[in-house]
């Protein structure tokens, strides 16, 4: 069973009279444990693709199955529950809650999963340790560097043991050294915990960390290359 099966996915945005076809007939299958990079020029539909995979947006047509669940038939709150349990998001702009400690930011997905305060703390501490931020739990986002903030975001994505992490340009706001550190962290999570990781990037250096690269152009997949050696 594939983790992700996307069949003939189309996404059309309508702005008044104009139709923008952001995704056209996208077929993709991603197995559990893969490390995929998504590339393509600006406006080619990468973010739209990630939003569909992340259950934040529904395709105009086509079928999307995540762990064999038909996402198309789900309501708002059911989608929220899927995002909560199965998907971790890492954004270009970190998207941490301001004026909220790293610890509480990491606990957030557990909060919406109805997990007790004690268990939340234990899991959040472990996740922070996993991304190398032991002892930084009390820091607020504005007291952390960009790289550290992105680590907190990764810890937040990890904390609910989601099988899938979606990262839309996670290194877009970071310098190359910090970017490399973040990519190494992703690689570690992928190999050690078998977490499926999909990242969007414009840079070949970053894509080089992955073992499969999907290229978009004008809303279509134009290439899908797997590196065989591990």
């Amino acid at each position: 069973m594939a983790l992700i099966e996307a069949k003939e996915i189309t996404k059309i945005y309508r702005i008044g009279e104009i139709q923008v076809k952001a995704l056209k007939d996208v077929f993709v299958t991603i197995e559990k444990g893969e490390f995929v990079s998504v590339m393509g020029p600006s406006g080619s539909g990468k973010s739209t693709f990630m939003n569909v995979l992340g259950c934040l947006d529904k395709p105009t047509s086509g079928d999307y199955l995540l762990e064999n669940i038909h996402i198309g038939g789900l309501g708002r709150d059911e989608l929220a529950a899927i995002r909560n349990k199965k998907i971790g998001f890492v954004f270009q702009g970190f998207n941490l809650l301001p004026r909220t400690s790293a610890m509480e930011n990491v606990e957030l997905p557990l909060l919406y999963d109805g997990i007790s305060a004690r268990e939340r703390q234990e899991k959040a501490l472990e996740a922070l340790k996993n991304v190398g931020l032991e002892g930084r739990g009390d820091h607020h986002p504005n007291q952390l560097s960009g790289g550290q903030q992105q680590r907190v975001a990764i810890a937040r994505a990890l904390v609910n043991n989601a099988p899938l992490i979606l990262a839309d340009e996670p290194t877009g706001n970071l310098d190359s050294k910090t970017s490399a550190e973040i990519m190494e962290l992703f690689t570690k999570l992928n190999t050690q915990s078998d977490i499926t990781i999909i990242i969007v990037t414009h840079e070949n250096d970053i894509a080089a960390y992955s073992r499969r690269t999907i290229k978009f152009l004008d809303g279509r997949i134009i290439s899908d290359d797997k590196k065989e050696k591990r």
Binding site: L56, A80, A81, R83, F89, P98, L108, P109, Y112, R156
Partner: peptide, 16 residues
């Protein structure tokens, strides 16, 4: 608005 978006992405439901 952005905070609400983050919470929703992370799994907050309508009534949350």
């Amino acid at each position: 608005t952005r905070e609400i978006g983050i919470r929703m992405a992370i799994g907050a439901k309508t009534w949350d």
